[in-house]
Amino acid sequence: MSSHSNAIVAHKHPSDVEGAKIAMWLFLFTEVLLFGGLFILYAVYRYQYSLDFHLAATELNASLGAINTVVLLTSSLTVALSIEALRRGNRKLSLWMLFITIVCALTFMVIKYFEWSAKIHHGIYPGSETLLTASSGEIVFYNLYYAMTGLHGIHVLIGMGVLGGMFYFIARKPINKEAINYDVVERIRGGSRMAVLADDGRELGDVINIDDKVERVEIKVIYENTPEKFDPRNEIKLENSGLYWHIVDVIWIFLFPLFYLII
């Protein structure tokens, strides 16, 4: 950008795939330890109130819990397949798999809704009179149940949002906009001409004069892709979204036996 007649727009920061992945894993660790605090509480209270926990858990519907486990495991499979498909350039399959993942997530939430509704209908919810007359251990069990499955449910919703966003990113035709910063515009002002050059220096398209009336220059690059082609940056984005989704699944893998299968 030192010359006075050329403005070159280039990606100065090549996307750092490895860095993005490191950061995502670090973020997943924070999720693990966020739930970790709750698992510590669970462990302690189960140790202290093992009989009460057993009694309280019999009220939960183990079949619904098991169905939800299968639903989430399947969604984990489909998101992994979606990533693999995108890596192999099969955009259509990738989108289908992503769609199934989101449907699974929705199914999970619907089942969860019926499960919670039934509990609340029976008067078992935090602060309810029914619950407050129960033993200490049962109160703690249900408070933990609502706190942990509730926080997990919020994560499922966030995951749905993230995966939905990814669906949009992969499905759309990518459009990249590049704005030239103010300083560059200042430097090339005053009779400079602006053109898009090919590698060998040939001018492509019209040449524009940058005079005083130009305040900002924005270059819009539109890629029209064939169905198989896609924006390569989507791959790491989808992979990271997938990682997030898997961790949501992993947490449920523990929640299921700890709440539904206490004998």
Binding site: S76, L77, V79, A80, L243, H246, D249, V250, I253, F254
Partner: peptide
């Protein structure tokens, strides 16, 4: 969890 982390992730 190990299966999910090792293969899926």
């Amino acid at each position: 969890t190990a299966l999910v982390v090792y293969f899926f992730m």
